[in-house]
Measured scan of single mutants.
Amino acid sequence: MAAAAAAGAGPEMVRGQVFDVGPRYTNLSYIGEGAYGMVCSAYDNVNKVRVAIKKISPFEHQTYCQRTLREIKILLRFRHENIIGINDIIRAPTIEQMKDVYIVQDLMETDLYKLLKTQHLSNDHICYFLYQILRGLKYIHSANVLHRDLKPSNLLLNTTCDLKICDFGLARVADPDHDHTGFLTEYVATRWYRAPEIMLNSKGYTKSIDIWSVGCILAEMLSNRPIFPGKHYLDQLNHILGILGSPSQEDLNCIINLKARNYLLSLPHKNKVPWNRLFPNADSKALDLLDKMLTFNPHKRIEVEQALAHPYLEQYYDPSDEPIAEAPFKFDMELDDLPKEKLKELIFEETARFQPGYRS
């Protein structure tokens, strides 16, 4: 834990890192770190609560700039109880001085990944967590956004079992017609939660990839272990087919990539493993919904509104309290091709509203 900075004593240090967030945020305490930044909790002297502050230093890398800009653009436009918001952003007053960006968010005690390492969940908890994931996802999908990296560590939890989806750095506007060349190379989302079509096709992607990830998360809540822990690309596919069985001819016809289709045709026939054999203690309604989410063919996979209306979630289902976005989200430009200098300018502009004396 960093010592509390005395008023006016300059930035606090946390594990050798400068955290320049005073005077409003003090009493910093280390939480963890990701690929390009550290997260601390801090005391907000204005709202009198502890908050989470993520320090991001992305400006050396085009990919990190892209992810940072995506996350900020999306989260500043989203407003939903099951999606983490941005409360404040701290950065230098000029673009030349801006080396880091500090993002202030609600402090959540833990995440689903940490929880599943230590606790076996009751059916009631599984049901409530799944409902909140789908409630947040309904809003995301209504904005025409794909999260693309749903996994237990991106689901934040607090002691009252509130759940918030975080990390929109890989999110995209849904565009089933656009052929994202190089899709697989830039697709760094965790393999275990990846839909089979991501490994088999490169053309376009749809909201059904997020539903697949939610199915993987439900299976993990039922058993405290990942359902498809593939060691590499082909191993991942083999794990999936080992449980779902061989795809039907109709399902194979959806695979545009001939090499991928021929690979699947070359494999020995596998039978589907019954879900109640894998999860003998699970609620039968939970397994019915799991089956509809972990469907090989993305066109037959359940959609988020149908999933919310499934009998497993009937005690929570309330369409009048499951809000959607006001308007579909649009990125003005494809960020993939922009140089990091341009992305830095866009991050600077996007964060201006939090600067003292800002006038829109």
Rank of each mutant, 00 (worst) to 15 (best):
Q119H: 03
R79D: 12
V49K: 12
D210N: 02
S248L: 07
L76R: 13
F348I: 01
E96V: 04
K138H: 12
K342C: 13
K300G: 06
V49E: 00
C65E: 11
P11W: 05
T351P: 06
V18Y: 14
A143H: 12
L346I: 11
C216Y: 01
E334F: 15
Y263D: 07
Y316P: 15
I83F: 00
K300Y: 10
P356C: 15
D167I: 07
D321N: 02
G22W: 12
P152V: 11
E71R: 11
D210Y: 00
A42L: 13
Y317Q: 15
S142F: 13
N238D: 15
R225G: 09
P328V: 08
K342N: 00
D251S: 12
R301Q: 03
L116H: 11
K151P: 06
S29D: 12
I86S: 05
L130W: 07
L69K: 14
S122L: 08
A4R: 05
I347S: 01
E109T: 12
V101F: 04
E326Y: 14
V14W: 08
I126E: 01
E197P: 03
Y113N: 00
Q62R: 09
D179R: 05
I90T: 12
Q17F: 12
A171M: 06
I240H: 11
T68S: 00
D179V: 00
K344L: 13
E197D: 00
I74N: 00
G169H: 07
I165W: 07
Y139K: 06
L130I: 12
C127L: 04
L157I: 09
Q355S: 06
P298I: 13
V101A: 03
V145Y: 07
D44H: 10
F279W: 12
R15M: 00
E96R: 14
K340W: 11
E96F: 13
L335R: 11
H125S: 02
S248H: 13
L308V: 14
I209E: 01
R77Y: 11
F19D: 04
S213L: 04
G8T: 12
Y358S: 07
N47I: 01
L156F: 04
E250R: 10
L294C: 05
T68W: 09
R67T: 14
L313M: 00
P319C: 11
D111E: 02
V21W: 06
G357S: 05
A3E: 11
E250C: 11
V49C: 12
R191N: 04
K117T: 12
G182M: 09
E81I: 11
R79Q: 10
Y205V: 01
E220S: 04
D100W: 14
M13C: 09
Q132S: 03
V188K: 02
P328I: 10
C254D: 12
L241H: 12
D283G: 13
I211K: 01
A6C: 13
D177M: 09
Q66L: 00
F228A: 13
L76D: 13
S246G: 09
K342Q: 08
I72F: 03
H269Q: 04
D100I: 15
K164N: 00
H232T: 09
R77Q: 03
N297K: 02
E349C: 15
R15D: 09
D100Y: 00
M333G: 09
I133Y: 07
Y317M: 11
N123H: 10
H125R: 00
C254T: 10
L308M: 01
A309E: 15
P311T: 01
R79I: 00
Y317E: 15
L335Y: 08
L121F: 08
A4D: 09
P226E: 02
L335Q: 01
L69M: 00
I227L: 05
L75P: 14
R191S: 03
Q355I: 14
C161P: 14
Y36Q: 15
K207Y: 04
P152H: 00
W192V: 02
R135T: 14
P23L: 09
K151L: 03
M108H: 12
L244Q: 02
E334Q: 10
A219V: 03
S360F: 09
S122F: 11
G204F: 12
I324G: 13
I211H: 01
L222F: 08
Y317F: 00
I86C: 15
N281P: 15
N144V: 05
R70S: 01
E326G: 09
F168A: 09
H232I: 11
G85W: 15
L222V: 09
I84C: 13
T185I: 03
E220F: 05
G85I: 14
K54S: 05
L146C: 06
G230V: 01
V18P: 11
L137S: 04
L170Y: 04
S202M: 02
H141I: 10
L121T: 10
S29T: 15
I89L: 12
K300H: 10
L338D: 12
L75Q: 01
P93N: 13
H232W: 07
C65R: 07
T206R: 03
N47C: 09
N144M: 09
T190Y: 05
L107C: 13
L218G: 01
I31H: 13
K340D: 02
R277P: 11
R225E: 12
G10L: 04
F78C: 11
T159N: 02
D88K: 14
C127D: 10
D44P: 10
D332S: 12
A42N: 12
F354V: 05
T118N: 14
E303D: 01
C127I: 08
L69P: 06
N27M: 12
R172V: 04
E250K: 05
L264M: 00
P152R: 02
L155S: 08
P319Y: 12
P247Y: 07
M13T: 07
P58N: 15
Y316C: 04
P23D: 14
P229L: 02
L241E: 05
E349T: 14
E345I: 15
D149M: 03
Y312C: 07
L222S: 06
D318T: 15
A143T: 06
Y193C: 03
S284A: 09
I53A: 14
V101K: 03
K270Y: 13
S284W: 11
H61D: 06
I209L: 02
V46C: 12
G357C: 00
N45F: 13
T26M: 09
T159R: 06
Q97N: 13
N262Y: 01
I211Y: 03
R172K: 04
G32A: 09
G242N: 14
Y102A: 09
G16E: 03
L287Y: 08
K55M: 04
D162R: 13
P229A: 09
K138S: 11
F296W: 13
I86P: 15
A282P: 04
L130M: 01
H239A: 08
R261Y: 07
L313N: 09
P152W: 02
F348S: 07
F59I: 00
S223Y: 00
K203Q: 02
L258P: 04
N27T: 08
D321H: 14
Y36G: 13
C161V: 10
R91C: 07
P176H: 05
L264F: 11
L290F: 07
G204A: 08
P323K: 14
C127V: 08
C161N: 14
D318E: 02
E314S: 12
V173I: 09
T206L: 01
T110E: 04
C254L: 05
I198A: 08
I240K: 04
K207A: 07
Y25V: 12
K292G: 08
V18N: 14
N297Q: 05
E33S: 15
H180I: 03
Y263I: 08
Q17R: 11
M221K: 01
V51D: 00
E96N: 14
P274E: 07
E96P: 14
C65Q: 14
K48F: 06
A327V: 08
E12G: 07
K285D: 13
A286G: 14
K138G: 08
L163R: 05
I84N: 00
D100T: 15
D175G: 03
Q66N: 13
D210A: 02
H310P: 04
R172S: 03
D235R: 02
P323D: 14
E341Y: 15
Y128H: 13
I211V: 05
K99H: 07
D100Q: 14
T181W: 06
S248I: 12
I227K: 07
V188Y: 11
P328G: 10
R225V: 11
K285P: 09
R194A: 04
R359I: 14
T26I: 01
F329L: 00
Y263V: 07
G136T: 11
I240P: 04
H299P: 04
Q17S: 13
P58Y: 15
G8H: 11
E186N: 08
Y205N: 00
E334S: 13
C166L: 03
C40R: 11
Y263E: 03
I198F: 00
Y25R: 06
N154P: 06
Y36V: 10
D318C: 14
L69N: 14
E109W: 10
L155V: 14
L112G: 11
A327F: 15
K231F: 07
S266T: 15
I302H: 06
P274T: 01
A282Y: 14
G37R: 00
A42H: 08
K270R: 03
Y316G: 14
P280K: 06
D336Y: 00
G136R: 01
V188D: 01
A42T: 00
T351S: 00
A35M: 04
I31M: 11
